[in-house]
Amino acid sequence: MSHTAHIPSHRKPRQSASKTALRAGVAGGVLSTIAVAGAAGPAQAEPVTQTIEMPTITAGLSTSVAASAQATQAVALDLETQAHEDAAAETASKAAKKAKAEAVRKAEAKKKAEAAAEAKAEAAERASRSTERTTLSASSGSSDSSSSSSAASSSSSSSSSNATGSAASVIAFAQSQVGDAYVSGGTGPNSWDCSGLVQAAFGSVGIDLPRVSQSQSTAGTQVSLDNLQPGDILYWGGAGSAYHVGIYVGGGQFVGAQNSSTGVVQQSLDYDPPSGAVRVL
Rank of each mutant, 00 (worst) to 15 (best):
S145I: 13
S150C: 11
G196R: 01
S159Y: 10
G185T: 04
N162K: 10
Q199A: 09
N162C: 08
V183I: 11
F173A: 03
S146T: 10
F173Q: 05
S142L: 13
P210G: 08
D208P: 09
S176V: 02
V178F: 08
G185L: 02
S204P: 09
P189G: 02
S158W: 14
G141I: 10
S145N: 10
G179T: 11
N190L: 08
S139P: 02
G141D: 12
V198R: 00
L136H: 11
A172W: 03
A152H: 05
V198Y: 03
S149K: 15
S139E: 13
S145Y: 14
D180E: 08
S195I: 04
F202V: 02
S140I: 13
G185N: 04
G203T: 03
S161W: 07
L209W: 06
G206M: 11
A174R: 07
G188N: 01
A167G: 03
T134D: 14
F202S: 06
S139M: 09
G141N: 14
Q175D: 07
N190P: 03
G165W: 08
S191M: 06
D180Q: 09
N162H: 10
G188I: 06
A172R: 14
A172T: 11
G206V: 07
A181F: 07
S145G: 09
Y182E: 07
I207Y: 06
D208I: 02
A200K: 07
L209V: 09
I207S: 09
Q177V: 03
T164Y: 07
S143Q: 12
S146F: 12
A200S: 15
S158D: 15
Q175W: 03
Q175I: 10
S145R: 15
R133W: 15
S160H: 11
W192H: 04
S147D: 12
S156K: 10
S150D: 13
G185F: 03
G203H: 10
S143H: 15
S145D: 11
T187D: 04
S145Q: 14
G141C: 13
L197E: 04
L197H: 05
D208C: 03
I171M: 01
T164H: 10
S148Y: 13
G196T: 06
S137P: 03
S158T: 14
S137F: 15
A201H: 00
S146I: 15
S149G: 14
G203E: 05
T164I: 12
G188E: 01
Q199E: 12
S142R: 13
F173H: 07
S161A: 13
G165Y: 04
A181V: 14
G165N: 08
V205E: 04
S166G: 02
A167V: 02
D193I: 02
A152T: 13
Q175G: 04
E132W: 14
S159F: 06
I171L: 05
G185Q: 01
V183Y: 04
